[in-house]
Design a protein around this nucleic acid. Structure first.
Lengths: 231, 231, 231, 231
DNA sequence: GATGAATGAGTATTCATTCAT
DNA sequence: TATGAATGAATACTCATTCAT
């Protein structure tokens, strides 16, 4: 038994040791990715896509330009990966709202609004980047894989929102419209207001009225989709 | 008579001739501008801002690259001038709606929706271009003069819309919100839906549901801003 | 008649004027091409294909890098165009030999040898470049058009040589072998010797024995293809 | 005895053991080198020198890029070492022909031709690589040591061939030319034909006529160097 | 005004090579 | 020895813009 344990232990140790190395490398790799993403965010946000250079991003990440290409296929994918990240966060938040068992459709709509605003506050610049990306020529140059991922996530979020509306319609709380259209409109209104207000803010250096405007927008939407009889 | 005409005519002719030349030159100049704008629209729409080249636009306009610079300061201003044009048209249409004396606020809101959809149909590509521009890094590189013009026109249109809401609120037809916020939201919803649906269409090659979605969006908005008691 | 001449002259003048401009531009363009080719030859010869940079070639040609791309599609085509030039010259010389009516096949073979050596002396570096190119990976990256031109010219020259052998075989002066094979061998021997001797010269800084070696080679070939009975 | 063996054996064992290790390591090392060379051949042949990457060669050899640098100083030396190998084989074959005591000069010339064609068949790709290398800019970047080795081997082979001719000339079988020149020409013809035919084959996807052409070439050469009286 | 040839600054990307582990 | 992540120098090519004609 002792001998057996002797002969087995090394293997186990070895196994765990190797796993430990792999894990550590994995974590190291993820850390680098984040390093790059953080730097990319800074530079893309400040300069925009065209005027941001890989070299500057690399300098910001305290890495060499070549290293960036070990983690991202090219400049465009690096740009898009920023969106991917916020989109994932958004999808999770939206999913959470959907799963809140003890909330009715209307409360869920409120929660959804809050969730989306949270996402904005969590990382406003990236969210705006994402909306830019969604309506951009860059989109055409992305690798199909990444493009699919972006589409998938967007569709998933909007789909979840649509499910929420569907539930509300069934329960006679929301007016009888195509749920997918409602979700699209909800999403559009959010992105439209975010872009317009951010833009106004950038140009006029006014106080940013985004929060207030969003609240009114959501209120209007909320009233607008409510069954009249319920109003 | 022949001789007289010979002696008088030249003077007259000369005067008119010169005026004619100026006018003709003016008209010629305007014709050239349009030629360029039409070509630019084609190329920018097909290739996007970055991948469109001045040379290709020039070739499309059957002019030389150098000539374009006699009419537009640079590539960015050429791009922006497309937006300027549609924005002017939009401002006019919005103004018209406002001036329809025999329409009440709610009917005016309907007319406004139709007007905006008209603008979309009049030149969808440019309208989309314009929304892209509004949320883009290109904006930062425009000459202050052009930027001012763009802002002025946008503000004017949104301002007119706000006036329309203000009137409705005074008459207790619309709920009591800040008119400017309502106008922003109305505008945002329109642009948001246009961008999202166009984008979906471009990526999925689906049927374009823009019209249907816009109609639902406007309906929701319309209900949403209506005074409850009236609902 | 006077009036007619009045109405025609301007057209003619105009026509000639335009042709003059066109011609001048054409000549100007050709001059630039030569400027670039001369510079390219210098730099490619000194540094080899990889280590030669477009910038250095441009500097040598006293032009800007961008200008080179108005005349040549890319670095590789510029490189290949050097070969094209010498190949054209070679084709002409070979053709001349073939057309010498008052020379018999054996004299023509002698004349051919002299012609090929002339071509070598006319521009040894480029001829060597050409042989390098013929056996190189660069070849795979050329545009089909240029590649075709190169092949066409090579084939043409070797074909003319083959015709010469065919004539000699018919007249029972050369031994009965496939003329195309003879032409290939003649060509191969020439290029093989040129490359080997140049290479030896480059590495050992010996005296260049190319001329002597080529003479012996041609003599051997000459004997080798002669009908035995004649020998 | 047991004890003695215990006390002695370890020393012996140790000695032999160490030698065994050294040998094993030596053999292991050689195995690795071959692994790399085989992979390099594959990749260089498929992609050419420039487009082949160290990483791909390493992947092919199932080693890491860094490891390659433990066996070869750099990419160029790795490339050249392929030539070295075939050149060594060629030198051996040529030497064998020379040492065939019971063959006359003419038969040796035949045997030489066969030997060289054997070498081609043994590894056509590498032989072609070698001829490319011989006439290339890469040559200039090799370490003096390797360059010397390449030159030495080439010189040795050509020298042996020259000796063969010298013998034939002495015996009045070959015409009285400088033996070294004859050897150069023999070598050049071989390489010239191999390159031309391979190239034609690569470009036109014709049947490869190399063997037939080489036979004719050797026949011509054979006749060409024979004493006339003998012819 | 119109031309279009020339400019040359600007940059993403590659890949041989190194070196800490 | 072997690894392979990181490096960073090096460069072909583009294209908005200018200006002599």
């Amino acid at each position: 038994m002792f001998i057996i344990s002797l002969s087995i232990q090394p293997l186990l140790t070895c196994k765990f040791y190797i796993m430990g190395i792999k894990e550590r490398k994995q974590r190291e790799r993820e850390r680098r990715r984040q390093q790059i993403i953080v730097a990319a965010k800074r530079v893309f946000t400040e300069k925009g896509f065209n005027r941001a250079t890989i070299e500057e991003i690399a300098r910001n990440a305290e890495l060499s330009p070549g290293t960036l290409y070990l983690y991202f296929k090219n400049k465009e994918e690096l740009y898009a990966s920023l969106s991917l990240r916020i989109l994932q966060y958004l999808a999770i938040r939206v999913e959470h709202v959907k799963n809140e068992a003890n909330l009715g459709p209307r409360d869920k709509l409120d929660a959804l609004m809050n969730a989306m605003y949270d996402v904005y506050e969590f990382d406003p610049l990236i969210l705006i980047n994402m909306f830019h990306l969604q309506s951009s020529e860059t989109l055409k140059n992305l690798s199909p894989v990444l493009l699919d991922e972006l589409n998938e996530l967007t569709r998933k979020s909007i789909g979840t929102i649509a499910a929420l509306f569907e539930d509300g319609i069934k329960k006679d709380i929301f007016s009888d419209q195509h749920p997918m259209a409602l979700a699209d409109i909800f999403w559009s209104m959010f992105s439209g207001v975010v872009l317009l207000e951010t833009n106004k803010h950038a140009l006029n250096e006014d106080k940013n009225f985004l929060k207030e405007t969003l609240e009114i927008a959501f209120e209007i939407f909320s009233k607008g989709v409510a069954r009249k009889s319920t109003g």
